[in-house]
């Protein structure tokens, strides 16, 4: 109680400049690995095709390090649809269909003062009834198929479906992705995608900051 205000003032601004400036910290192995050297690699996720890493399968394990090194760019998402009506206010409902928990933490961290997604008009809701977008994390577990469809049905139109993390996109090495049930409009790769990547995709999907 005593000095929370003082502590806040002393701490100064912690919030990132992103998306108006560059990200302050990028977790290297969550970005796209690109070939920088010679040598054979076997990818445990079968993500390398014709010398290129397919981000929908890459699990950011770094087993290709050496011949490959991380690019360090966070804007690796595939934005299949932009819904400009959500620009000023974008409410996201997160559903965990079978994740390891890392994606959940990365989405959760967007609400802290460092990322402060609220300043960009992005809010997280606890019911699909108020949601503009469904953010799916994790592989599609059998038991979560019904809840996922119920959540999707409960959402008002227009609605976006976003798959965050390799598990949700393709299932990665652990199972199947969400595509069996829903077509994802926005794909956010990474294992887990860094918070900046998720934030970038959210901002782009709603038509800009």
């Amino acid at each position: 109680m005593r000095n929370w205000v003082l502590r806040g003032v002393k701490k100064g601004r912690v919030t990132t400049r992103f998306p108006y400036g560059e990200p302050e910290s990028v977790s290297p192995w969550s970005t796209r690995p690109v070939r920088t050297g010679e040598g054979d690699v076997t990818c445990p996720a079968d993500a390398i095709e014709d010398g290129e890493v397919r981000m929908d399968r890459c699990i950011s394990c770094g087993r290709c390090s050496g011949p490959f090194s991380p690019e360090g760019k966070i804007d690796i998402s595939v934005i299949g649809r932009v819904e400009k009506r959500f620009r000023k206010s974008f409410t996201v409902f997160v559903i965990d269909t079978g994740s390891c928990g890392a994606c959940n933490l990365e989405v959760k961290t967007l609400s802290n003062p460092i990322y402060d997604a609220h300043r960009l008009g992005i809010n997280f809701t606890s019911t699909p009834r108020h949601a503009d977008a469904l953010l799916v994390v994790g592989t599609l577990a059998e038991g979560m198929k019904e809840p996922l469809m119920r959540a999707y049905e409960a959402m008002p139109e227009p609605k976006l479906v976003m798959a965050a993390g390799t598990c949700a996109i393709s299932g990665g090495i652990l199972g199947e992705g969400v595509s069996g049930l829903l077509k994802a409009d926005v794909l956010i790769p990474g294992c887990p995608p860094t918070p900046f990547t998720i934030l970038d995709a959210l901002v782009k999907a709603k038509g800009g900051p």
Binding site: S25, S27, P28, S60, G62, A102, T194
Partner: peptide, 14 residues
């Protein structure tokens, strides 16, 4: 972020 700087991954994967 400290983990990501020193271990290359925020959750020590890989």
């Amino acid at each position: 972020r400290i983990a990501s700087e020193h271990f290359g991954h925020r959750y020590f994967f890989g």
